[in-house]
Simulated scan of single mutants.
Amino acid sequence: MYSEDARYLKRRVTGGDVDVHPTEKALVVQYEVEATILGEMGEPMLGERKQCHKIIRLKSLNAHTDITSLARKVVEECRLISPSKLPQVEQLLFYLQNRRKTDGKDKKEQNKPVKPRELTPFEGMEIDEEASINNIEDYVELLYEDIPEKVRGSALILQLARKPDNLEELLQNETALGALARVLREDWKQSVELATTIIYIFFCFSSFSQFHGLLTHYKIGALCMNIIDHELKRYDLWQEELQKKKAAYILAMMKCAKHNFRVV
């Protein structure tokens, strides 16, 4: 019976976009699976489509890897990637090969003696709690509380966003994305760590071209530019105040030295 039914099941796999993994040395291949049940005469009766992705990890990729040969091997071994995408695969591999490594830098930063307050903006990203996609609604509720709870909620969502497998499900949660965009727009001046965490979440989406529409919809690019512009102006103001204090200090020292010279 099962073999007879199988004759009327048609399955088609269509390859899609290829992009880089946001954190690993890997490629992410998007593809679509279409399953159609056919009638006795071959006519389609019921169909279903599902968006999927495949992660191709490139453990051997290093600074000395022959990108052209590796790209050719990837295209040959992965049937989901069309041979016409070979130039694109080469570009993506070249990007991965030259992408700045963050792990080594993080270790150096940990060994570098710094004041505790310099670590404050990043405390929200490191919490002793493991996030679960099943609890996303609880994390969203935290975004409607005070700043400390918003920092915690956004940090938990960031844990989820850093795993590409969760991005598609997060994309379907308009409440979560809308809340994140709202908090970033309204509260970024109140907490640097909150703003940094939420921007990092949207950065995870920006690593994949199919999610760029999300960033455009919530105007994340324009918002980030406003934040950067504000911080640059604040930096210039700090520099100006610092120069004034230095000038006042030098003037005071000169007056003191002149007074001491007269006394002598």
Rank of each mutant, 00 (worst) to 15 (best):
L184E: 03
H259K: 14
V29W: 05
E240V: 08
I228Q: 09
L27A: 06
S82H: 13
S206F: 11
L251A: 15
V140R: 12
C52R: 13
I220S: 03
T175M: 08
R262H: 00
A195P: 04
K244Q: 14
R262P: 00
L237N: 09
Y139D: 01
V33G: 01
N62H: 13
V264S: 11
L46P: 01
A71F: 13
V192S: 02
V263I: 15
Q190I: 01
P121I: 05
L251W: 14
Q30I: 13
I81Y: 03
E241K: 15
T175Q: 12
P44L: 12
F122N: 02
F205D: 02
E137F: 13
Y235G: 01
L119S: 07
I81R: 01
I199S: 09
Q88G: 02
D128I: 08
P148M: 07
V183F: 04
G39H: 04
R49S: 09
E141R: 13
K246E: 13
Q172A: 05
N111Q: 15
S154E: 02
I220H: 05
D236Y: 13
A248I: 06
V264F: 14
A131N: 03
I227M: 10
S207Q: 13
L180Q: 03
R49F: 11
D146A: 13
L223S: 05
V18M: 01
I227R: 01
N111C: 12
Y200F: 15
N226V: 07
V75K: 03
Q88W: 15
D128K: 07
K25E: 01
E40A: 06
R57N: 03
F203P: 00
E129G: 00
S84K: 14
F211G: 04
H212I: 05
L160E: 04
S154N: 05
V18K: 00
T65P: 03
L143P: 01
L223F: 15
R182K: 15
K101G: 14
G124P: 05
V20G: 02
E32M: 10
V264Q: 09
P113Q: 10
M45W: 12
K219I: 11
I250K: 12
L119K: 11
N166Q: 02
V28S: 00
P87L: 10
L143F: 06
K245C: 01
L167F: 10
F208P: 00
F94K: 05
Q97A: 03
V140T: 15
G178C: 09
I56E: 05
D165H: 12
F94T: 12
R117F: 15
E32T: 14
K150T: 04
L223N: 03
I133K: 06
E129I: 07
L143A: 04
K25T: 09
K233M: 11
A195G: 08
L156C: 04
L119M: 11
R100F: 11
P113W: 11
R12A: 08
L119A: 06
V74Q: 03
R117N: 08
C256R: 14
I220V: 15
D66C: 12
P22L: 06
D165I: 12
E77K: 06
P116V: 03
I220L: 10
V20W: 09
T197P: 05
D19G: 14
Y139K: 02
A6V: 08
E126S: 14
N260Y: 10
A161P: 07
P121D: 07
F203R: 09
